[in-house]
Simulated scan of single mutants.
Amino acid sequence: MLDLLAAGAGEHAEASAFGLGPGAYVALSMIVVIAGMLWVGLPRIIAGALDNRIEGIRKQLDEARTLRAEAEKLRDEYARKAGEADKEVAVLRASAERQAEEIVEKAKADAAALIERHKVISAEKIATAERAAIEEVRAKVATAAAAAARELIAEKHGEAADRKLADEIIGNL
């Protein structure tokens, strides 16, 4: 017996039931599981799930294409509008520049007219002041002349000369 034990110590015996080894039981179990899956219709369920997933992906791709087409359409529309806006800005800028030039020219003309009016008004004021000064000088000269004449007449004319002058004036009348 020791020989059997010594000889069998390096090897061990494989268990078996009903004449089948462990590998056969694993194979039999796999066959049963696969048959159960086929009987339940698991491939059909998996195929249906995959088909649904594929259909969902197709819908998403179609929606993405539609959205892309709409985005391109909007991009083109906005590009067109931006071009129109640039043209309108250029027209408005040109118009504003023209109006600014007209305003500057009108301001220059108005300033020149205002300066001319001020010159005329100043000339009139100067002329008025000159006339007033001349009148004042004339009045002073007349007053001085009258005073001088009075003094001269008082000195040179006496009573007899005044009578003679009065008689002449009365005789002429």
Rank of each mutant, 00 (worst) to 15 (best):
H12Q: 15
A111I: 09
A7S: 01
G41M: 06
I103T: 13
T128C: 11
A27E: 07
G21D: 12
E11S: 14
Q60P: 00
E63I: 04
R131I: 14
I121G: 08
E88K: 03
A147W: 00
T66D: 02
K140V: 14
A109F: 01
G171N: 12
A132E: 13
A107R: 10
E168S: 08
H157M: 10
I31F: 14
A109C: 05
K87T: 05
I45Y: 09
I126N: 11
A17H: 14
A161L: 07
N172E: 12
E124A: 15
E130S: 13
I153C: 06
A111M: 12
A139S: 09
T66S: 15
L74S: 01
D3F: 06
S122Y: 05
A69N: 03
A166E: 06
H157P: 02
I121P: 00
I115M: 13
K140W: 04
A85I: 01
A160N: 11
D167P: 04
V26L: 14
I45Q: 13
K87Y: 03
D62N: 05
A79H: 02
I169L: 08
A69R: 05
H157N: 07
A47G: 10
R65F: 04
Y25R: 07
F18L: 13
E102G: 08
K59Q: 09
A6F: 02
E136N: 07
A85V: 02
I34E: 08
T143P: 05
R98Q: 14
A82Y: 02
G19D: 07
A7Q: 02
K156Y: 06
T66V: 15
L74G: 01
R98W: 06
E88F: 01
Q60F: 04
E124D: 13
E70K: 03
A69D: 06
L28T: 12
A85D: 00
L67G: 08
V141Q: 10
G56R: 10
E63T: 00
S122F: 11
I170Q: 11
G56S: 10
I121V: 15
I134M: 12
E151Q: 07
I115T: 15
T128G: 13
L38R: 14
R53I: 07
E97P: 04
R138C: 12
L165H: 05
E168A: 08
R98E: 10
A96V: 11
S29W: 04
A96I: 13
A160P: 00
K156M: 04
A24N: 08
A69K: 02
L28H: 11
A109R: 12
A35T: 15
K108H: 12
D110Y: 06
V89F: 00
Q99N: 09
H118A: 15
A161H: 04
A111F: 08
L173Y: 00
T143Q: 14
V91R: 03
V33H: 13
G48P: 04
K108A: 13
H118I: 13
R163W: 08
Q60M: 10
A9M: 01
L5P: 00
L28C: 10
E116V: 03
K87D: 04
V141R: 08
A111S: 12
V40Q: 14
E168I: 08
L92Q: 01
I126H: 12
L67P: 00
R117I: 04
G41Q: 05
E116T: 06
I153K: 09
